[in-house]
Design a protein around this nucleic acid. Structure first.
Length: 884
RNA sequence: GGGCGGUUAGCUCAGUUGGUAGAGCAUCGGCUUUACACGCCGAGGGUCGGGGGUUCGAGCCCCUCACCGCCCACCA
């Protein structure tokens, strides 16, 4: 490719698509496992088949891709497993909603037909997610794509279930669970969102059995009165102590229930008397168990009052509440009503209010698993940033048994069969032919399916072929790092730890990197209802994938949320374009197809500008890799930005332009070309993990790369001899001299087109030599007509001055320059010097500082004061001439 | 109630073992300097939320207060 074919502005769309196709067709990211392989592996947090990728995914995937691409550069054999999650309730809801539009429900279809519908839906929309992962440029191994419901993973799920059951770690039991009356299923504690709710607190009189008195309870749920089994008071509450043991008559039914004492009751709250409804409240359930109370359900699994609810029977629970309240008022039992705000659980999927509901469910006894998952951190698994450690511990310490059964259809069906004849329960990986106890052949499989997170918990090893002993497992388990947002630390990470340790005998990942949440520009969570969602695909269309990825990397500071706005992404598109144009410049100056590029000895190169940029390149090589390995993506991105734009483009490319002039000799040209080629080439490799596309495109266009793919290029080896801080110091001096002239020009309003005659009085012989050696470059970049280097040169009376690293830069005036402007400029400059000098001297005047501070710092400060004094003297001399 | 994070230039944010503050964007001034106006050159702008402490020295460490945000638990 030659420069003619590189357009002036970078156009990402076509370029990116070419590389996506290239990498996929060449299976570039399918690892080759050899005995020498040093493995690096990541399993993708599987996106839900229901969704579209949002910015959180884009960040998550970008981070993983940076890690994987960099690991390949370091010579690792990298496996990044892609895949998707069947997302039980979420997916079922989506499909049900679609059916509802046709006026049908899932029961109209029946279980099998419904599941077929869901599979069809998955085929249609799973492809959508896959396209988006591809759009982001993720270097996953598509030949190993997995789905939580595919055959292999389902086998792993059954095996795990059966083994845990046989170990006594899975059991079936009655429990009060979070019930969604809309989704018709139990939910785990962490699938419930607690949201503030404005309700009322009703104070209701319960008459004593003998009618002699009342006890007044406070409740937010009068509709459950018919399910009450007791009234509880605090044992030390003297207001009620005389009533303990007596019975009260419930409103509506007149049923008698006892007044019991329990320290759970808060004397300060309400009336200090609490009605106990064991079947419809989590705490009441505990109290009911403890006191052996009656368990009476008055609300069914649809949220409708049951026939035993008397006058309320058949009403929805919300209606029943109003009706009950009104009836109580009419009966004269209502003492008062207060407005009251509490928090109420909502289904995390459908937002319906959760109803505490007693039912038979399957549970995992997690205590022993949780302890091991706790102990493995941070010894075997490290969490980054470690601020999440406490949260992780806290959750595991307070964990309750995990309810894993869900009363839906889409998911892994529980591998348990009951004998139709004797009721014997069999938990097996495959359906048994007959009852193991009575031999009867009619068996009925449990209707429930497993919590989605059950299969997700196996993901790190199930995706690698477990329970078979595969070479993937042998090579790539444990995985290197898990990259995720903190929102699923518990749902997912902790459970992978528990089951990974239990079944593999080893932690599932060495590192957990928890990245930020992506928010909108105002710090709000992105959500459809707020309408503030920035769609990654839209951004990719408008600004290119590299811009988006670089933006996410640049803002991915550890432990902090990202406030994303479109302007940022647009801003970094400028950077992509800058790289593009710098590359165009390079290609214009490099030979077309490699043949004529003459290697030079970089370790012994001449020319401060070359030495300097090679020195900086060495520093960047060390820093970039370090930053990526430490999950400091913002540092990596920002260092590269500054290096490429400010140092490479603004300075180095300008510095070598004179070397490329027609009149320059061949050696000068060859040297500049070779260094230019080297720096650009290696910088592209450093940048590649963050910006895979443009780096691949430019790499392919550069001479000498002979059809290689940058995605397979190793990280550039260090060149220790090129680390030359003294060259960097010399370069800094040259830059300061150039900037001094530019500043004088700008502040005195001298036209850029006017070439200046400039005198520099060098600080010493060494400085003089350095400046002399780079005379040409100074003349070009400072736009000079002539440069006089002479310590003894006499400054014309009318001239502007600036001190640059001790060198006095003198620009003689033309008549038109405003004297006052230069006086003001000098005064400003002097003030700056005096201020710093005063500060330094103050510091040095303190005996304790001179005694206690490290010597090198004291020396440095003393030297600095000398410099400041010398510089101020020079400027003062110039200033004095204006007054004469 | 328990825990965590934040408060630094107009805005959004960096600041890696304590050495006297940086970037991008925005602002102002200048520029057809043959890679790039998605550009170049230059400039202005901060008592690092308040108070106290440790230290020769604090944006950074300790205490405290204020405000903002998040997580967990509870909520009759």
């Amino acid at each position: 490719m030659s420069q003619e074919t590189l357009p002036k502005a970078y156009e990402p769309t076509a370029v990116e698509q070419r590389w996506r196709d290239h990498w996929e067709q060449n299976t570039t990211f399918t690892p080759e496992i050899t005995p020498e392989s040093e493995p690096y592996s990541i399993v993708i947090p599987p996106p839900n088949v229901t969704g579209n990728l949002h910015m959180g995914h884009a960040l998550n995937l970008t981070v993983q891709d940076i890690m994987c691409r960099h690991a390949r550069q370091r010579g690792k054999t990298v496996l990044w497993v892609p895949g998707m999650d069947h997302a039980g309730i979420a997916t079922q809801n989506v499909v049900e909603r679609r059916l509802a539009q046709e006026g049908k429900g899932r029961h109209d279809l029946g279980r099998e037909a419904f599941i077929e519908k869901v599979w069809a839906w998955k085929e249609e929309y799973g492809g959508n997610i896959r396209r988006q992962v591809k759009a982001l440029g993720c270097s996953v191994d598509w030949t190993r794509e997995r789905f939580t419901m595919d055959e292999g993973l389902s086998r792993a799920v059954r095996k795990v279930f059966v083994q845990l059951y046989k170990e006594g770690l899975i059991y079936k039991g009655d429990y009060i669970v979070n019930w969604c009356t809309r989704c018709h299923t139990a939910l785990a504690d962490d699938e419930v969102d607690h949201l503030p709710n404005k309700g009322k607190l009703w104070h209701v009189k319960y008459p004593l059995e003998d009618g002699s008195d009342f006890i007044t309870i406070a409740t937010v749920r009068p509709e459950t009165i018919l399910g009450d089994s007791a009234v509880a008071v605090h044992p030390e509450d003297e207001r009620y102590s005389h009533l303990i043991g007596k019975k009260v008559r419930l409103p509506f039914s007149g049923r008698l229930v006892p007044i019991i004492a329990d320290t759970y009751v808060d004397r300060e709250f309400g009336t200090g008397a609490l009605k106990i409804t064991p079947s419809h409240d989590y705490n009441d359930w505990e109290i009911g168990k403890k006191h052996n109370l009656e368990f009476i359900q008055v609300i069914d699994d649809n949220g409708i009052m049951k026939p035993n609810a008397g006058v309320l029977a058949g009403l929805r629970k919300e209606e029943a509440r109003e009706v009950a309240a009104k009836a109580l008022e009419e009966m004269g039992l209502l003492v008062k009503v207060e407005d009251y705000e509490n928090s109420v659980g909502h289904c995390y999927r459908c937002k319906e209010i959760i109803e505490p509901h007693v039912s038979t469910q399957w549970f995992v006894a997690v205590r022993s698993l949780a302890d091991k998952a706790r102990d493995a951190v941070p010894g075997q698994t490290q969490i980054f940033p470690d601020t999440w450690l406490k949260t992780y511990y806290n959750w595991l310490d307070n964990i309750r048994d995990w309810c894993i059964s869900r009363q839906i259809w889409w998911g892994h069906r529980i591998p348990a069969w009951a004998c139709a004849s004797c009721g014997h329960l069999m938990v097996e990986e495959q359906a048994p032919d007959s009852c193991a106890k009575c031999g009867h052949s009619v068996l009925k499989q449990d209707e429930d399916v497993l919590d989605t997170w059950f299969s997700s918990a196996l993901w790190p090893f199930s995706t690698m072929g477990w329970p078979d002993k595969t070479k993937e497992l042998e090579t790539f388990y444990p995985t290197s790092v898990l990259v995720t947002g903190f929102d699923i630390l518990f749902f997912w990470v902790a459970r992978m730890m528990m089951l990974g340790i239990h079944f593999m005998g080893e932690i599932p990942f060495h590192h957990v990197y928890i990245h930020a949440l992506v928010r909108d520009a105002d710090g709000r969570k992105m959500s459809k209802s707020l309408g503030n969602v920035i769609n990654p695909l839209d951004m990719i269309d408008k600004y290119g994938t590299d811009s988006l990825r670089f933006t996410l990397a640049a803002f991915a500071a550890m432990g902090r949320d990202i406030r994303l706005s479109e302007e940022r992404i647009e801003g970094y598109r400028h950077f992509v374009n800058k790289i593009w144009n710098a590359s165009r410049f390079a290609l214009m100056n490099l030979p077309e197809n490699g043949g004529e590029l003459k290697p030079v000895d970089l370790d012994n190169i001449e020319g401060t500008h070359h030495q300097w940029i090679l020195h900086r390149l060495e520093e960047m090589k060390a820093a970039t890799s370090r930053s990526i390995l430490d999950y400091r993506f913002n540092d990596a991105a920002q260092d590269l930005y500054k290096f490429i734009w400010t140092e490479f483009c603004d300075w180095y490319l300008e510095l070598i332009k004179p070397d490329m002039y027609a009149e320059a000799d061949d050696k000068t040209k060859d040297t500049a070309r070779y260094v230019l080629w080297t720096v650009l080439r290696e910088t592209l490799v450093l940048l590649h993990p963050i910006m895979p596309f443009i780096t691949a495109e430019v790499w392919a266009a550069l001479p000498g790369n002979g059809g290689t793919d940058i995605a397979e290029e190793p990280y550039p080896a260090p060149r220790p001899a090129c680390l030359r801080p003294e060259a960097a110091a010399r370069m800094n001096m040259i830059q300061e001299v150039i900037v001094a002239v530019r500043t004088i020009r700008a502040e005195l309003n001298i036209a850029p087109s006017l070439k200046l005659k400039t005198i520099v009085r060098p600080l010493d012989a060494e400085s003089a030599a350095t400046l002399e050696a780079h005379r040409k470059v100074i003349e070009v970049l400072a736009r000079l007509e002539s440069l006089t280097l002479d310590a003894a040169a006499v400054a014309p009376k009318l001239s502007a001055s600036q001190v640059a690293c001790g060198n006095e830069v003198i620009v003689p005036f033309e008549g038109s320059v405003n004297l006052d402007a230069e006086k003001a400029r000098l005064d400003k400059e002097l003030a700056k010097l005096y201020k710093e000098q005063a500060m330094m001297e103050g510091k040095l005047a303190s005996p304790s500082y001179v005694e206690k501070a490290p010597q090198h710092l004291v020396e440095r400060d003393r030297a600095r004061v000398e410099e400041l004094i010398a510089a101020a003297l020079k400027l003062k001399a110039v200033r004095a001439k204006f007054e004469a």
